[in-house]
Amino acid sequence: MTEAFTALESLSHRFPWPSQRPSVPAVPWVMDYGGRDLIRHLIAVRQPRVIVEIGAFMGGSVRQWLAMSPDIKVVAIDPWPQIEGPDPFWDSHPIGRLHTGQFREPDGLYLAFLATMWDHRNRVIHARGYGCDILPVLHAHGLRPDLIYIDADKRGEEISICDELFPEAIICGDDWLWCDGWCYPTQKPVADSARRRRRVLKTASNTWLIDDRPWTAAERMIWLRCLPQSFVRRFRAWMRARHGCDSSGNPVSPAKNGCDNSHQVNEA
């Protein structure tokens, strides 16, 4: 753990918290689309000490990981981009509408994250940027996370980087059942990574996990409890695809190039 502590100290200087809490409201927005019990169970059983989350948003899942153990440290990666103009995602959600003015202020998302996670700042390092850019920085600082949770780019571009830089880490994430209107873009890179690592691919609703251990009875129960939600999500994706929309309800082109047929939405 000495190496991990040194790496975390170095990163905390690279990505420091401000000296004062931003004077904006906290936004305790949790977007959980199902199956995270699979990750919480893993954390409870194996007690990872260092977790990297790619796509931290308002820290909803980060707070879930922190609640599992007082010894956990999290590196939260997100670009926290500037929002400008109308946006179907923010404008269709009650919390998004409630904080629409705050989010569209300069650095609105970033400041909202800092305010929301302020009480956890001693256990969270916030690295502002895209996962593909930040992961090599973490590696260069000597960080070797136990677990990496990916909830960012739906195409899974960060997965191959994690395979290369952090082959010993357990990787998992969200968006298993997110559909772009034609296929499930996350599923192929996840399945490819599981094959490269020669590990077991576990899924429960929208959550996926590439594990170095076989399914346990407890994990099978989680999968079973998530089955109804999985069917609903697949059916909803199929219905939205029929109307030319992705899982978020945004209009898309009628066909996508490069989608593996085994992951097409018409199998739902």
Rank of each mutant, 00 (worst) to 15 (best):
51 I>W: 05
23 S>L: 15
40 R>Q: 04
35 G>W: 03
46 R>S: 13
15 F>P: 15
34 G>N: 04
51 I>R: 05
42 L>N: 03
26 A>I: 10
37 D>Y: 00
41 H>N: 04
36 R>M: 04
18 P>Q: 09
24 V>E: 08
29 W>K: 07
49 R>G: 12
22 P>Q: 08
36 R>E: 05
26 A>Y: 07
46 R>C: 09
47 Q>A: 15
51 I>T: 11
36 R>A: 02
28 P>Y: 07
23 S>P: 10
33 Y>S: 13
48 P>I: 08
36 R>L: 05
19 S>W: 08
23 S>A: 15
20 Q>P: 10
42 L>H: 04
42 L>T: 01
51 I>V: 15
23 S>V: 14
25 P>F: 10
32 D>V: 05
35 G>I: 04
43 I>V: 15
52 V>D: 01
44 A>P: 03
39 I>L: 03
30 V>F: 04
15 F>Y: 15
47 Q>C: 11
26 A>F: 07
33 Y>G: 09
15 F>H: 10
25 P>M: 09
45 V>Y: 01
49 R>T: 09
27 V>L: 13
32 D>I: 05
34 G>P: 02
50 V>M: 12
24 V>M: 09
47 Q>E: 14
20 Q>C: 10
47 Q>L: 13
48 P>L: 08
37 D>I: 00
24 V>D: 09
54 I>P: 09
40 R>I: 01
24 V>R: 06
16 P>H: 12
31 M>L: 15
16 P>K: 14
41 H>K: 02
40 R>T: 03
44 A>W: 00
28 P>N: 11
16 P>N: 13
17 W>D: 14
35 G>Q: 07
45 V>T: 10
37 D>F: 00
39 I>K: 00
40 R>E: 02
30 V>H: 04
21 R>L: 12
18 P>S: 12
33 Y>V: 11
52 V>I: 06
33 Y>W: 15
17 W>V: 08
